[in-house]
Write a protein that binds this DNA or RNA. Structure first.
Length: 884
RNA sequence: GCCGCGGUGGCGGAAUUGGUAGACGCGCGAGACUUAAAAUCUCGUGCUAGCAAUAGUGUGUGGGUUCGAUUCCCACCCGCGGCACCA
């Protein structure tokens, strides 16, 4: 029985060695002729950070999915490029170095080795000949080159900016490392600090980053998230003159300002229709006018100081609780002729719009909350609440409580020339009016900020900038690239960038640029590394440029990008930004890098929660491969459910997949033997039809990434095959269930999913049938003439060196259809019977209706009833409607 | 609060230009093999009633359109993900 036992360890070892010898799928031909170009397929899997803990079952899912597609496409004659690389810079390796003193170079290298070996073990058909790593000088020299191009065009600039600072770790933290206002690592409170930082001017491309989304085949949710992040808001900047009224002086409706205006304030509003309800103005603490007032007014200065000191944690804990201070100044509302007190409050954001807003408490919850705060403080001089939009039911009552604040659509009131209009029209009319009067100007605002790329970290790409003795920044000369990351640094956190401690780095700069020159000590955000890697893949060994124009034109855009949802905002935005920039510089012809994108779901622990070491619910893929083999792991993960949803792990279901593969193997080996021994084909019409249907199903499902249903189809086939095999065992004379050709078809469709087992069975087939020529005809139990013919047929079969180099089997649509069709027969919408007929009759409505009505099962439903309507949906259903 | 996604057996999930709901797998039950267990194999398995044929019922809830709704429309409930004082 040993020959029916699939020894996955042995087979996998053998196959991996064999594929290595064949260099299977390595050294992809990247220079395509124009006729080949139409068949190119560039498949991209999200860049992997090679962590110390090795490959995760989540990686296995997405890598396998793309691998199946890659193999399927190759078998269909497409020219597939499926590259691999490592997002090797980053914090964990550096933190590990801080803890242990082991250099990140070393830990990263060994982590990559582990990942590569694990990936190969899963038969992921990457082209390892083009492998890249972001920490390799031949990669990051081009990251630096990209920085320099941006610098030349003024898109990389330096500015003082707010950063998250962990006082305990003595370092800057990325936003993602701040969890609820606390440092991710040591849980101390994060403070804000002003540091001079490098930025990329992504805002220059904000409109294109919106419009570019239109034609992409991306999940709608992903596009929406990009849009939300960019946050485009149309509105109007309204300018108000500012006066220093005394309390109680003038400023009542209709009153004229008693003095000349001191200055003007501009407020951004997307709801100018409500301006007749505006009763105050609020400035962000960082607003220039607020800063100016602080010089003369102690209270304001104190408030600004307090706001400045507020940590992210305090801000979050406060929630929507309002605070603020009165400036003593008033803005004049030229529409209502009302004086509007100017306050400073930290609920207004400095970096959106103008940093100043006009308060309409009746129609904005935040404004109402602020009024609530102010009127508690100074009940003798309350801020007013004026309703200017009626509720949906025409409700016009005064607004005195937060719950009544109305932000929706409705009819305008108390608004002079806007009265009676609906909000949408009123907005337009008011904007026209304000522009005409010169009180305002239409503008568009964005939530998107420029990209802060400086990191006070060691393990990253050095920023290629040097400073002259006066402290002025200069770009590193291109001939000095790669601007190598020094190795002689201390890892103990000192509050300064680790690069500062490198003697070699400082000496290098003085040697190359002159005495007193200093290097930039910061490194780049690792998002910079990972936002152009798909370009480098096109020509990853090029020494003269980041990739040759020809290669870039041939392979871009990426045909399918499979990526986790966690990268949906920043990574994609940055990659698109670089692509657009390089296009404008003439390096690229495409304006969007990823034509089609899909997201894999998360694989959850058996308890249904996210896998994590602390929860102890992590599944180690290596163990599954050891126990069941790589094919089982691959197929199980594809069978769990749709690729894009989150799915919990189930150990018992893994065993189910292993059972399926073992059974398939046993049946195939059995059949291979018999094909070599005998010729008579038994009764197997069902099986042949099922085979055809299965080929059809896989041909349709695999390109759509619907692997779970494809695998279910294969299981159905093997169930049927198993039954037929069992039946054969009871027969007197053995017969064939599948011919040689049919068996090869079956192995062919299994190949992308189970590359090891299919290869092994293909090898056995080849061996058994090639040796058949040596057998004497006397051993073959059938008619001599037929035997000759069959043997010739077998000998004429051509075998490729590997099943993975064979062609995807075609199916015969006619054979895939069954000769009989089954129609459901409904009476008053309920299924009451079934009608089986020859397919030929499918369009013979009269005959089918007659037969349906004659069904015995329907007798009791139709007896004595009158049929008022008869419906026939070809091939599907017959519906009879009775008189009620 | 806003945006997005989803809700189908004991579990993972199939099936949507509206046409026999529950494919496939897990689990469970029964049986075969075995001294026995494991493994393997066979049969059964939405729920309720019935020995059974069968009938009723059933895709988060309520309503609507239709001969017919998991699928379309309206209202609501619940869960998940993202953003969050963006004026």
């Amino acid at each position: 029985m040993a020959k029916f036992f699939y020894d996955h360890r042995l087979v996998e070892q053998k196959c991996l060695k064999y594929w290595d010898e064949l260099s299977l799928f390595q050294n992809s031909n990247l220079d395509l002729s124009s006729s080949e170009q139409a068949k190119k397929s560039y498949l991209l899997f999200a860049f992997v950070y090679p962590s110390g803990s090795g490959l995760h079952v989540g990686h296995v899912e997405s890598k396998t999915a793309l691998d199946i597609l890659a193999r399927y496409q190759r078998m269909n004659g497409q020219l597939v490029y499926f590259p691999v690389g490592w997002d090797a810079f980053g914090l964990p390796a550096e933190n590990y170095a801080i803890k242990t003193g082991i250099h990140p170079n070393q830990t990263t290298k060994s982590a990559i080795d582990t990942f590569r070996q694990q990936t190969k073990r899963l038969a992921i058909s990457y082209d390892f000949s083009s492998e890249i790593s972001t920490s390799h000088p031949q990669y990051y020299r081009w990251t630096q080159w990209l920085f320099l191009q941006l610098y030349k065009k003024g898109l990389a600039y330096q500015e003082k900016g707010r950063v998250n600072w962990c006082p305990s770790c003595q370092t800057v933290l990325a936003n993602e490392q701040v969890v609820n206002g606390l440092c991710e690592r040591c849980e101390s409170e994060v403070v804000q600090k002003d540091l001079k930082q490098w930025y990329f001017k992504i805002k220059d491309y904000q409109d294109e980053l919106i419009s570019g989304l239109d034609d992409l085949d991306w999940p709608a949710a992903t596009k929406q998230q990009q849009l939300n992040w960019i946050g485009r808001h149309e509105g109007i900047n309204i300018t108000y003159p500012v006066y220093a009224f005394e309390r109680g002086d003038g400023g009542e409706p209709g009153a004229k300002p008693s003095a000349e205006s001191i200055t003007e304030l501009t407020c951004f509003s997307s709801r100018p229709d409500t301006n007749f309800g505006a009763t105050f103005v609020v400035l962000a603490p960082e607003h220039a006018f607020a800063q100016e007032i602080a010089k003369e007014k102690k209270q304001v200065a104190e408030y600004l100081a307090k706001a400045e000191k507020k940590t992210e944690l305090e801000r979050q804990q406060e929630g929507r609780k309002k605070s603020g201070v009165f400036t003593g100044y008033y803005a004049f509302n030229r529409l209502t002729r009302l004086k509007m007190p100017i306050w400073v409050a930290d609920f207004v954001l400095a970096n959106f719009g103008t940093g100043a807003v006009v308060g309409v408490p009746a129609h904005d919850k935040r404004d109402f909350e602020f009024v609530d705060f102010v009127n508690r403080q100074q009940p003798q001089d309350p801020l007013k609440v004026i309703r200017v939009v009626a509720g949906p039911d025409g409700n016009q009552e005064a607004i005195t409580q937060l719950e009544q604040v109305y932000e929706g659509e409705g009819e305008l009131l108390n608004s002079q020339f806007l009265d009676g209009l609906m909000v949408k029209e009123a907005i337009e009319k008011m904007m026209d009016y304000l522009e005409e009067k010169g009180y305002g100007q239409r503008v568009v605002n964005y939530q998107l900020r420029d990209w802060l790329i400086s990191r006070q970290r060691y393990w990253g790409t050095p920023i290629p900038i040097v400073y002259d003795p006066e402290g002025k920044a200069h770009p590193v000369k291109e001939e000095h690239l790669p601007w190598t990351l020094p190795e002689d640094v201390g890892f103990k956190p000192s509050g300064e960038s680790p690069l500062k401690s490198s003697r070699e780095f400082n000496e290098r700069v003085e040697r190359l640029y002159g005495e007193g020159w200093k290097p930039e000590y910061d490194t780049m955000d690792t998002f910079v590394d990972s936002s152009w890697y798909f370009l480098r893949y096109c020509d990853s060994r090029n020494q003269e440029s980041f990739a040759s124009p020809k290669r870039l034109e041939q392979w871009l855009p990426v045909d399918l990008y499979l990526i986790g949802r966690e990268h949906v905002v920043l990574h994609l935005l940055y990659s698109r930004f670089f692509t657009k920039f390089l296009r404008y510089q003439g390096y690229l012809k495409i304006s969007e890098p990823f034509a089609k994108m899909r997201h894999q779901g998360m694989i959850l622990g058996p308890d249904g929660r996210k896998m994590s070491k602390s929860k102890g619910n992590v599944i180690n893929p290596d163990k599954i491969v050891d126990q069941y083999g790589a094919d089982t792991l691959r197929i199980y993960e594809m069978f769990m459910g749709p690729l894009e949803t989150d799915k919990p792990w189930d150990d018992r279901a893994v065993a189910g997949v292993a059972r399926f593969l073992r059974k398939f193997y046993r049946l195939a080996v059995e059949e291979i033997e018999l094909v070599a021994q005998l010729w008579s084909v038994g009764d197997r019409a069902d099986l042949v039809q099922k085979l055809q249907q299965t080929v059809k199903k896989l041909t349709e499902d695999l390109p759509k990434l619907k692997f779970n249903t494809a695998i279910a189809a294969l299981m159905e086939l093997s169930n049927l095959w198993g039954k037929a095999s069992l039946l054969r065992k009871t027969a007197n004379e053995p017969y064939l269930l599948l011919t040689a050709q049919e068996l090869l078809i079956l192995l062919g469709i299994l190949a992308p999913l189970a590359p090891f087992m299919s290869e092994e069975l293909y090898g056995q087939t080849k061996y058994a049938w090639q040796n058949i020529a040596d057998q004497t005809l006397g051993e073959i139990r059938c008619e001599l003439a037929e035997a000759r013919a069959r043997r010739q047929a077998l000998e004429s079969l051509e075998f490729a060196p590997s099943i993975h180099l064979t062609t995807w089997p075609a199916y015969d649509p006619a054979l895939a259809q069954s000769e009989q069709i089954t129609l459901a027969v409904q009476v008053n919408g309920k299924v009451r019977g079934e009608l089986s007929v020859d397919r030929d009759l499918i369009n013979d409505q009269a005959e089918l209706l007659a037969r349906a009505k004659a069904l015995p099962a329907l007798e009791k439903w139709l007896a004595g009833q009158k049929i008022v309507k008869e419906i026939y949906v070809p091939g599907k259903i017959i519906s009879l409607v009775l008189a009620s």
